[in-house]
Design a protein around this nucleic acid. Structure first.
Lengths: 188, 188
DNA sequence: TTGAAAAGTCAACAAGTGTTGATTTATGCG
DNA sequence: CGCATAAATCAACACTTGTTGACTTTTCAA
């Protein structure tokens, strides 16, 4: 019997395996088309375990899409580079996330699942909007955050979901150079 | 027996009714969640008829998402207003389309259905990219079209799919004024 | 009016879904 | 080691899906 030298309890290991498989599968297929059996197969486990550990497919999805944008404090960035800094940060979040695309999962799902759309709006309200610099009225700040969202979500949609060839072909630096000024202007 | 004075054959009328119901249902629920039974119910008809008239759910979806962007010839627009003109045109297409959102249907579906994503890319290649003004190399033109797509699809996603409050709240004129310059810059 | 073709209805199918309970296997502490 | 408990498996459920074929009703030209 091959004893893994992993000290974590067995249950935690399979729990993590399910979560990883779920993230990968949701990212690839979206919420509706990713079946519990798909996820279980990818984790080399019985479908019943998925339910046993997370209660339901919905519950699993909720766990799989919990994440933190960790947006930087823009007031600490030199005023002329805030747009570029924000774009660079978003690219980091989307490209380098563990488990295969936490943000991509939610973006995909939000197109069809009302609950996922709710979560997306909630993230916008609690993480993106507050990252805007104060100055103008509350409505104006919200408007600016909304404009930033249109550009950043559109970029993510074209690059990671739709995989539009010219957008996929762009390098990180090209994107920062092209889209940065847009965000910079939206910031006010 | 109330005789409608409609001269069109009965079959054409129900065919149109199914198509209308399909567009509305697909726009509301997306491809996966919109069932043939839903569509049939909305058209006050038997589910079997949907298949009888369009062969399959896929076939119906293909018919429901056939549309033409009718992009304007930018070379006829004064150089300083091309961005705004393009944004205004997209807003017209999205907001004023018959049957409840042809573009919205495809945008929603493209997030999960690979075939819909294909169609979206095809529309980009055949309608959006050619609308760009020539001048630089082929790759540069494609890049510009891609950037325009990120902004316009992002706007549509936030406003019509995600329904992000501040983006929904913006008026047509506000959008043209804010997003127009972005597109203008992407055009070259 | 009559009768063949078109349009519409009905019930059912086969496949796939999330989920559950009983049962078996493995774990890890005393 | 032994054994209670947790973990994993298996088979099956209730339900929904797209799709089909047999049947009935309506349409409409001859």
């Amino acid at each position: 019997m091959p004893k893994t030298q992993d000290r974590t309890p067995k249950s935690e290991r399979t729990r993590a395996a399910i979560l990883d498989a779920a993230r990968a599968t949701f990212a690839e297929l979206g919420y509706d088309r990713a079946t519990v059996r798909d996820i279980a197969a990818r984790a080399s486990i019985d479908p019943a375990m998925v339910i046993r550990y997370f209660g339901s497919k919905d519950g699993l999805f909720a766990r799989a899409t919990a994440f933190d944008l960790k947006l930087p404090d823009l007031s600490r960035v030199s005023p002329g580079r805030r747009g570029q800094a924000l774009v660079a940060h978003f690219l980091d979040v989307w490209e380098g996330d563990a488990g295969g695309g936490g943000m991509t999962i939610l973006l995909r799902a939000a197109a069809t699942d009302p609950e996922a759309a709710d979560r997306m709006r909630e993230i916008f309200a609690s993480q993106v909007a507050p990252a805007m610099l104060p100055g103008a009225g509350r409505a104006e700040v919200a408007r600016r955050a909304g404009l930033v969202a249109t550009q950043m979500l559109g970029l993510a949609f074209c690059r990671y979901v739709l995989r539009l060839p010219p957008v996929v072909a762009m390098t990180r630096e090209e994107i920062i150079g092209s889209v940065g000024p847009t965000v910079q202007r939206y910031l006010g």
